[in-house]
């Protein structure tokens, strides 16, 4: 009761609202500043070929990050999402020669299934998602390693079913990135216009109140994890296409940048605050940062440190302390 009282008081005074607004706008400011700085260093940074290169790297990170956004909005997290995308590349590599284009549909459905499964365990057993998904991370990684005998599988036969993802251009821009951006926009529009569009946010803000108003928080949670799984599979399609192969750890290195994209975009790790458009901004920041760091001469070895610092720093800025009771 007391823990709730004080932040309320500051809310009443309204002195935090300017700060809140600034923080909300911060990701976009950071993105613009980054682009400006990098453009100053590399005058042709915003040139067509460079932008194309940037966007090619965007799709898998953005897809993973959008998926994760669904879960983070509910206040949970799915640590297994990158591993699931690796698994999906292995499945694609194994199945494309056998069943061709059907695999392109089947694999995302399977990762949808793994996501739903995670959601069911979290919702039914009522255990924290970070532990369940940590376990799931081991499980699916083990499955991927076993299926692939721990080696990269080249895709040659049946590649044309996914080749278009990398090769196709619309107005000179890679179709994979355009699709990913379109999916982010569709999700954002859905959140805005559906009569129950704010349900995921409500889940993160006030799960009990949502349930006590007759909404099935169990189904909502399962659906959020399902979406995360589905998007991990889509990211896997892009990865497999661009790498001409499936590999049991192919997507693993995207875990940190994708989580970093979600949080630096302004999605609160405590849930309820944010959305796919924020994630899009976050993913763009990460992509520009990658290129920008090397442009200003920072060795690639420092990339991990940057991601780590971004995750911690962005969480500090976006976390809603007034909602926190005991933090474990």
């Amino acid at each position: 009761m007391t823990a709730q009282t004080e932040p309320m008081a500051t809310r009443w005074l309204g002195d935090s609202s300017l700060k809140d607004r600034l923080i909300a706008a911060l990701p976009l400011i950071v993105l613009i500043a980054l682009v400006a700085v990098v453009s100053a260093q590399q005058p042709n940074f915003l040139g067509m070929s460079n932008v194309r290169g940037l966007l090619e790297g965007l799709a898998p990170i953005l897809l993973l990050a959008i998926g994760q956004t669904f879960v983070i909005l509910t206040g949970g997290i799915d640590l297994s999402f990158a591993v699931v995308s690796s698994l999906s590349t292995v499945l694609l590599a194994l199945w494309l020669p056998e069943i061709g284009p059907v695999a392109v549909v089947l694999v995302p459905l399977i990762t949808l299934g793994t996501g739903l499964l995670t959601g069911i365990v979290v919702a039914v057993a009522q255990v924290p998602s970070f532990i369940v998904t940590l376990g799931a991370m081991g499980l699916w990684s083990g499955v991927a390693l076993t299926l692939s005998s721990a080696s990269t599988i080249r895709i040659s036969e049946g590649y044309q079913a996914i080749g278009w993802i990398t090769d196709m251009r619309i107005a000179g821009l890679p179709v994979s990135a355009l699709i990913a951006i379109a999916l982010a926009v569709i999700a954002a529009v859905a959140f805005k216009t559906l009569s129950r569009g704010r349900t995921l946010h409500a889940m993160g803000l006030a799960e009990k109140a949502l349930l006590m108003s007759g909404n099935s928080t169990r189904m909502i949670r399962i659906a959020a994890f399902g979406m995360c799984g589905l998007f991990s599979g889509l990211a896997g399609l892009v990865l497999a296409s661009s790498q001409y192969s499936g590999g049991p750890t192919l997507g693993d290195t995207l875990m940190l940048p994708a989580i970093a994209a979600v949080v630096i975009g302004g999605n609160a790790i405590t849930g309820g605050v944010g959305g796919p458009m924020k994630t899009l901004v976050g993913a763009l920041i990460i992509i520009v940062l990658r290129v920008g760091l090397s442009a200003i001469g920072v060795p690639a070895a420092y990339e991990q440190i940057v991601y780590g610092a971004i995750i911690v720093g962005a969480v500090v800025l976006t976390i809603d302390r007034s909602r926190l009771g005991i933090v474990k």
Binding site: T193, S195, G197, L205, K208, S213, G272
Partner: peptide
């Protein structure tokens, strides 16, 4: 505060948290 209102959401969103049917057109919010 925990089970009644959804703190962090607006007064309007809270009012239609249980049953948005009266302010919906199909699946969309009017």
């Amino acid at each position: 505060r925990i089970e009644g209102v959804a703190q962090g959401m607006s007064v309007q969103e809270n009012i239609f948290l249980a049953d948005p049917s009266t302010v919906s057109r199909g699946p969309f919010l009017d």
